[in-house]
């Protein structure tokens, strides 16, 4: 199949939804302010980004700054979650005593919704970036942790035997066998984690900070600017999609050895 017809395939569903939505909005079935047509949203979004006619009022031309402050929070919280989740996951998966001592506590914290930490996060960290970063961390940490543990525990024992036959120390086993063996699972966790990270940065921005895409979304809701709400939603969706695509690129580079042996490797 050619590249062109492939990208056409990807566009069919979104284009169909947009077209139906445009027609529905223009039919006057609902007041235009409650469900702005895609063309209106696009116009407002354009002004938010480029600032040509101030349809987005105070937000005009400020999209990049908003997107950057959200992305910075995601990057910080996600970065901490990746390092701590992978390290702790390997420790829990490998050493039984770590599992026995640490895991019960973590499993009790896991079902607590990250959002319910907001009051405490604000008391601890104040109204600034820190509570938002903390929430992003909470959201991304557990999927990364759980998948890393799973990856370590399902590592092939025979590979560990083969490596110790070649004289590997425990530290070398972890670095040269267990970590690469767990990598496919770790990447699954990283992809779930990045989605959670975006969800939580928006939640945090609604309450704890005064900048970012989530803040604009909530602020516009107060002023009944549903076109801006939708533009903010679309922005978050696109950024989430882009970061996930970035992780997928990293993944296929790191897991190129799976080429031809898994279903995943069929993807172009």
């Amino acid at each position: 199949m050619t590249a062109l017809s492939k990208s056409w395939e990807r566009a069919v569903v979104p284009l169909f939804i947009l077209a139906t939505w445009e027609v529905f909005s223009r039919s006057g079935f609902l007041p235009a302010a409650l469900l702005p047509a895609p063309s209106v949203v696009l116009h407002t979004w354009g002004d938010w980004i480029f600032g040509f006619d101030e349809t987005s009022q105070g937000n005009t031309g400020r999209w990049l700054a908003d997107a950057l402050s959200s992305a910075t929070r995601v990057a910080a919280g996600y970065g901490i979650a990746v390092v701590s989740g992978v390290a702790l996951g390997i420790a829990i998966g490998w050493w039984r005593w770590v599992e026995r001592t640490v895991e019960p506590t973590l499993q009790m914290l896991r079902p607590v919704p990250p959002v319910s930490w907001i009051p405490l996060a604000i008391i601890w960290f104040g109204i600034a970036n820190k509570p938002a970063i903390f929430l992003v961390f909470l959201g991304a940490f557990f999927p990364i942790l759980m998948n890393t543990i799973h990856g370590v525990k399902t590592a092939d024992r025979n590979l560990i035997r083969a490596a110790s036959m070649m004289g590997a120390t425990e530290q070398q086993l972890l670095r040269h066998v267990v970590f690469p063996a767990a990598l496919p699972s770790i990447f699954a966790g990283l992809r779930i984690g990045i989605g959670a990270a975006w969800m939580l940065t928006v939640t945090a921005e609604m309450v704890a900070v005064k900048s970012g895409l989530g803040y604009v979304l909530w602020d516009s809701y107060y002023f009944l600017r549903y076109d801006l709400v939708l533009a903010a939603m679309a922005s978050i969706g696109l950024l989430g999609y882009a970061t996930d695509a970035l992780i997928k690129v990293l993944m296929s580079a790191a897991l190129h050895w799976q080429h031809g042996s898994t279903l995943q490797s069929r993807e172009g």
């Binding site: 035997r161 110790s164 004289g167 990598l183 050895w257 799976q258």
Partner: peptide, 18 residues
């Protein structure tokens, strides 16, 4: 314990797939 003075060939090759 296992060590590199004794090389072992297993029933399954047990190669690092990566």
């Amino acid at each position: 314990g296992p060590g590199a003075d004794r090389g072992m060939v297993f029933q399954q090759a047990n190669l690092m797939p990566w």
